[in-house]
């Protein structure tokens, strides 16, 4: 069984880090993983995306044209990649910046106002972690507890940020469950 997610948005939204944390959690859960960035001449404010592939067998082609899931952090990403998602996948939409839907009725669409949630938590920069948590809670791509461990691992050199990011994880999970 192979699962893929494309994470896309503006440069500076923490897209690459979200992908890395997800890939790390999947690896720790015992899966084969590949994380592939878009590495064109990118800049802050430009487009950025990465793909994470998770599988229970060695991963062949690392280039994925039709991912199972999509995390769209801005409108151009949703417009560009929503049509490529496989039927039955999760399309996560950053509701704070995107005022349209995916236009698909064969996927599980999840809209979360991550910026407002992050602001309530006291730091807008945790918006990407809120998004990642909501996506994982809905898609089950990795175990939520593994995701928590990977967030702790990622921030181990900036320990004081760990409690805030764990709160962001919880907030994201609640948003995905509609609570």
């Amino acid at each position: 069984m192979q699962n893929e997610v494309k994470l896309a948005g503006f440069g500076g939204q923490g897209i690459m880090l979200m992908g890395k944390i997800l890939a790390h959690a999947a690896m720790e859960q015992g899966f084969e993983v590949v994380w592939i960035p878009s590495y064109g001449p990118e800049m802050r404010g430009g487009t950025a995306y990465c793909t994470v592939v998770v599988s229970d067998r060695p991963i062949g082609s690392p280039i994925i044209k039709n991912p199972r899931h999509l995390i769209a952090m801005n409108r151009p990403s949703l417009e560009k990649f929503a049509p490529t998602v496989k039927p039955g996948g999760v399309i996560f939409i950053n509701g704070s910046l995107i005022d349209i839907d995916s236009g698909r009725d064969d996927v599980d669409e999840l809209v979360v106002p991550i910026i407002e949630i992050a602001k309530e938590l006291g730091n807008v920069r945790t918006a990407n972690i809120v998004a990642l948590a909501a996506f994982v809670a809905r898609s089950g791509m990795v175990d939520f507890e593994r995701l928590k461990e990977s967030v702790k691992e990622e921030f181990k050199r900036k320990e004081k940020l760990i409690p805030l990011n764990l709160k962001a994880l919880e907030a994201g999970r609640k948003a995905a469950q509609g609570k």
Partner: peptide
């Protein structure tokens, strides 16, 4: 190739 350099794997 560029992918071998750029991608992350375990």
């Amino acid at each position: 190739d560029g992918l071998i350099g750029q991608m992350m794997e375990p």
